[in-house]
């Protein structure tokens, strides 16, 4: 178990469904862990934003909630590109993938990616998000 990180700042949510962006940012607000939540409606937008701010310590995504089933670029495509980010960036940034199914194929693909912290089935439960935050960060 790696040491826990200090209290996180930024949560990034990437999902093509505007409903799920609204719902999951709402749920994340309730756990009162993140000071800032940013939503992106496509993997491309999310990547563009992260790449532009790679050197900006003010904008560092401690946690990324990433939908799997998205048109054009899906969650796995996103991860292929995310894997190219510098190691010291990835060290403190955790990706949680969200799927609307418990498809076996999704599970095995997630298992094989070391940069994915966990796979969760939608709908995201507040208890699950809380548990992940407690596992990763030093909360008071």
């Amino acid at each position: 178990m790696p040491p826990k990180a200090p209290k996180p700042n930024l949560l990034v949510i990437i999902d093509d469904s505007s409903f799920d962006l609204r719902i999951n940012s709402g749920i994340a607000t309730h756990i009162k862990v993140f000071t800032q939540i940013l939503c992106f409606s496509s993997a491309e937008e999310g990547l563009d934003f992260l790449v532009e701010n790679l050197d900006n310590p003010q904008i560092y995504p401690h946690l990324i909630l990433l939908d799997i089933q998205m048109p054009e670029m899906d969650g796995f495509e996103f991860m292929k590109r995310y894997d190219k980010f510098p190691d010291n960036f990835k060290k403190g940034s955790n990706v949680v993938m969200l799927s609307s199914t418990d498809d076996l194929q999704d599970i095995t693909r997630v298992d094989s990616n070391k940069n994915v912290f966990r796979l969760l089935k939608k709908p995201l439960q507040i208890e699950q998000l809380k548990a992940i935050a407690e596992e990763l960060y030093l909360l008071d």
Binding site: S17, F19, D20, I23, K121, K122, P123, L124, I126
Partner: peptide, 11 residues
């Protein structure tokens, strides 16, 4: 997917 969203709204 939309069903999960509906459940999410209820949560």
């Amino acid at each position: 997917a939309p069903l999960a969203s509906a459940l999410g709204v209820i949560n």
